[in-house]
Amino acid sequence: MPKNINKAYKSPFQLAKERFLKNKLAIASIFFLLFIIGAAIFAPFLTDHDPKKGDLLLIEHAPSEEHILGTDGSGRDNFSRLLYGARISLTVGFSAMIFTLIIGVVTGAIAGYYGGIIDNLLMRLTDLVLALPFLVLALTIIALLEKVTIGIFVTIIAITSWPTLTRIVRGSFLSLREQEFVLGARAIGATDRRIIFKHVIPNAIGPIIVNATLMMATMIIAESALSFIGMGIPQPNPTWGNMLSEAQNIRILRNHPEAWIPPGLGILLTVLAINFIGDGLRDAFDPKSNP
């Protein structure tokens, strides 16, 4: 490697990285998200209270030195529930995003690259899934199951949200497949696998990453929404959504804002941060979108 390599020659990915690093809002959002992730990971060091164990003598207590955000209706410490709740909200959002990403990229790539009957079948399947309202489908599946675990929950979100990504990936594959550089790769005798991984995916990765990021925000909201109406991760597991469901009680809503404002803000700011990062990535990958 020559010494001057980092001086002059920049790959399109390096250029995108530089553009992203110039986006102050996105960088601030990254730091905020890292802070939330850190709080979730190091929750056991930040609080001594068990988020699942209530003390029936300490129901709905106001903030004190021992319980800085007070306690909930079952006498559990709100602060520790907030920290451990971040774990579940972020885990659900992140794993559902990865799961969706895998299904979406594989199906989209197959449909877009090979076309024909497979493409037709996959597209009708996406139409079918897109036609089902998420909430109704999720509620039905949850109602049929006896116990809802995080794994089941993530699967439900993933199997209802992959079609959007499949269509995006298929679209980029369809247009990239006809590009001259893909024809050129075929002309030198490259295999389908090499063409897909070396030529098509690197050129389609921008919209895929951006959409996956924005999707993660939607998934965190979906988890919170279902938990809020009591159909999500069941108690006593803490999530931001089921902490908020406490606020369905008018007495807590009025008298104990410290119980529901922090998880509400947690959802709001986390989702906002992820969206800012997604926007930042979009601008970085496609400089034309934001002059």
Binding site: F181, G184, I188
Partner: peptide, 22 residues
Amino acid sequence: RPVRRSMQIVFQDPFASLNSKM
């Protein structure tokens, strides 16, 4: 595939025929 070694093509549009990520 092995025959392609002896026959090659140069395309019209030099902006579309090179993978910009490589």
